[in-house]
Design a protein around this nucleic acid. Structure first.
Length: 179
DNA sequence: ACAAGGATCCTCT
DNA sequence: GAGGATCCTTGTT
């Protein structure tokens, strides 16, 4: 449970990483968040931010695995992605939901008294992330440690990607811890 | 330099 | 269940 995930963990198929991240725990200082839901975005995927080429924002997705890709959504929410696959292959896992393990008081103060972390903007807020975290390697302020795999994993289409190709919209590349 | 829009969340009806 | 918040990123002039 205390073993931090190495870059090696992220250096493989993004969908496998997304599934295996369920149950693992994000750790920043006293706050620990167990990952309950994640989505895979990988090379050749029209819903991927990287699908239209490299820009300053999405550049971390091309970088080495095990780094952060943080971006601002709707001007308000910081969404946390963990970069996967070999350097040069733009891919990442979006952390869509979690549950607070420790640091409840800190999360409440960051979240206006709330503790629920169902939704990617809430996860970023609970961890106190901003755009300055994008591109940083895991281990420098934020790390992920192994946790027990959930008893059951469900899959579903990804959320909020209606502009992508229909086949990619329909694909079940969202992984949800159940049970 | 400008305009459009976004891998969302919260409040109010 | 609808709508507003809010600001960065991007592509275009």
């Amino acid at each position: 449970m205390l073993e931090p995930l190495s870059a090696h963990f992220f250096d493989r198929d993004t969908r496998s990483v997304a599934r295996d991240l369920l149950g693992c725990v994000l750790v920043r200082e006293e706050v620990q968040v167990r990952i309950l839901e994640a989505e895979a975005y990988f090379p050749g995927d029209s819903a991927n931010h990287a699908a239209r080429g490299r820009t300053p924002r999405n550049a971390p997705m091309w970088g080495p695995p095990g780094h952060l890709y943080v971006y601002l959504c709707y001007g308000i929410h910081t969404l946390l992605n963990l970069v996967t696959e070999a350097e040069g292959r733009p891919a990442a896992v979006l952390i869509r939901a979690g549950e607070v393990v420790t640091g409840h008081d800190t999360v409440r103060s960051r979240r206006g008294g709330r503790l629920d972390l169902i939704g990617p903007g809430k996860v970023g807020q609970a961890l106190g992330l901003d755009l300055g975290w994008s591109g940083r390697p895991l281990g420098q302020g934020l790390r992920v440690v192994r946790g027990p795999a959930p008893p059951e994993v469900r899959t579903a289409p990804r959320v909020g990607i209606d502009a992508a190709d229909p086949a990619d919209v329909a694909a079940c590349w969202r992984y949800i811890a159940a049970g």
